[in-house]
Computed example of a mutant assay.
Amino acid sequence: LKGYDYWGFCDTDVLLGDIYQFLEEHSFFENDYSRYGLLGHLQIFKNSQEVNHIFMSGQGLNYRLDFHNIFTSEQNFIFDEADGIQKIFEKNNFKQLQDKFFDDIDISHFSFREYGENEPKRYYFWSEENGLESINLIDGNIKVNRPLYAHFQKRVIKCPEFRLVDSFYVIPNQLVIGEKISKEELLEVTRNKFYWAYVKSTILKKFKKEKWTLEFIRHKLRMKS
C-alpha cells in the first residue's frame, strides 16, 4: 500500500462506477473521512498507520470484535460490516461516510429491483465518459441515477468474450457491448418472469447440511451474546 492515500476491497458481484469522482462529489477527501462503507460490498480506508491497525482495537470488547477469534476460526464473523469493523470505527470516533449510495439488487426476482421495489423497469449502462448509470423507465419517462455501484447478489450474468470497450449495458441477466437502448427495448428486456435459477439455488441450499459441530454451536451462541 506504500505510496497510496487510500485502499479498499469489494465483492466480485458488483459493477462499479467512477469511485474517485463519486467520493469527490461527497467531500470524502475534503472532510478527511477514515472510511467509506455501509456493507461489505465495497470498503475504502484511509491509508494511515492508525486506520490500518484499528481492527486490533476490538480486542477484549466482545467475541465477534476480537481479531484473535476472527483470525483463528473458520466460521464467518461478517467482520467487514455493521456489526464488525463499523462498530470499532465508531468506538474510536473515526469519521465515516455511511449513506447508502448503491443499488442492492434482490436476487429472488428476475428483473433488477432493490428490496421492497415493485416491478421496476431498470437496466445499467456503463461508459468511459460517465461511469455507471441506472436507467429507469418511470411513468413513461426515462430517469437516470448514478449509484456508486450495483450489487447483483451472486446473480449469474452471461458475458461476452472480454475486450476493452468504451461502453456496455447490463440487462437481466446479460452483459451486452453497445450503447443505450430505446424505451421499447427497455420494456421488453426488463420484463419480469419466472426465475428458475433462483428457485434451483434455493432448493440446493435446503439440501446443504450445515456442519453442526460443537464448535459451530458455540460460535453461534457467542455471536448472539
Rank of each mutant, 00 (worst) to 15 (best):
I19A: 01
Q75K: 08
I70C: 00
D106C: 01
Y169G: 09
D18N: 15
I177V: 15
G37W: 01
L23W: 05
K87F: 05
W7Q: 04
H109N: 13
I54F: 08
C159Y: 07
F94C: 06
D104H: 06
A82E: 13
K91C: 08
L221P: 00
S111A: 13
S182P: 08
D103M: 10
H219N: 10
S108K: 11
E129G: 06
H109A: 11
K95T: 04
P147I: 00
Y36M: 10
E161Y: 04
F216W: 15
K100R: 15
N93D: 08
G40M: 01
G140E: 03
F152I: 03
A150H: 05
K95G: 05
H219K: 10
I85W: 08
E184A: 10
E210V: 09
F207L: 15
Y123E: 03
H219R: 09
P120C: 02
T72G: 05
D13T: 04
Y149G: 01
Q49K: 15
K154P: 07
E133K: 07
L97E: 02
V144F: 03
E74R: 12
E24M: 08
F207Q: 11
S108R: 11
F110R: 00
F29H: 04
K200V: 09
F29N: 00
P120L: 03
N173C: 01
L204G: 01
K46V: 02
D32K: 14
Y4E: 06
I105W: 06
E184G: 00
V51Y: 00
W212N: 14
N31T: 08
N52I: 00
F28C: 00
K46T: 04
W196H: 14
Y4P: 00
Y20K: 13
V144N: 01
K183Y: 02
N141F: 09
D18F: 15
Y169K: 07
D83W: 09
Y123G: 00
P160R: 02
L42G: 03
I157D: 06
F22V: 00
D80H: 10
S27F: 11
Q86E: 12
S182E: 10
H41M: 10
W196I: 14
E184D: 14
D99P: 09
G8N: 01
S34C: 13
Q86A: 13
T12F: 08
I85Q: 09
N118T: 14
N69S: 01
N145W: 07
V51M: 03
K158G: 00
L1Q: 04
L97G: 02
P120A: 05
E90A: 14
D66Y: 11
K100P: 07
K100Y: 11
Y195T: 02
G40S: 10
I177L: 08
E184V: 04
I171C: 09
Q153E: 12
E117D: 14
D80S: 12
Y36C: 08
K180T: 07
Y198D: 13
Y63N: 09
L221A: 11
D32E: 15
S48I: 01
I88D: 05
R113P: 01
W196T: 12
K91A: 13
E161L: 06
Q49W: 11
I70F: 10
Q49R: 13
K91F: 12
S73W: 04
A197E: 14
Q86F: 12
H109I: 01
F216T: 13
L16A: 08
Y6Q: 00
S201R: 11
R222N: 15
H53W: 10
Y20H: 14
S108E: 12
T72F: 10
F55N: 13
L164W: 04
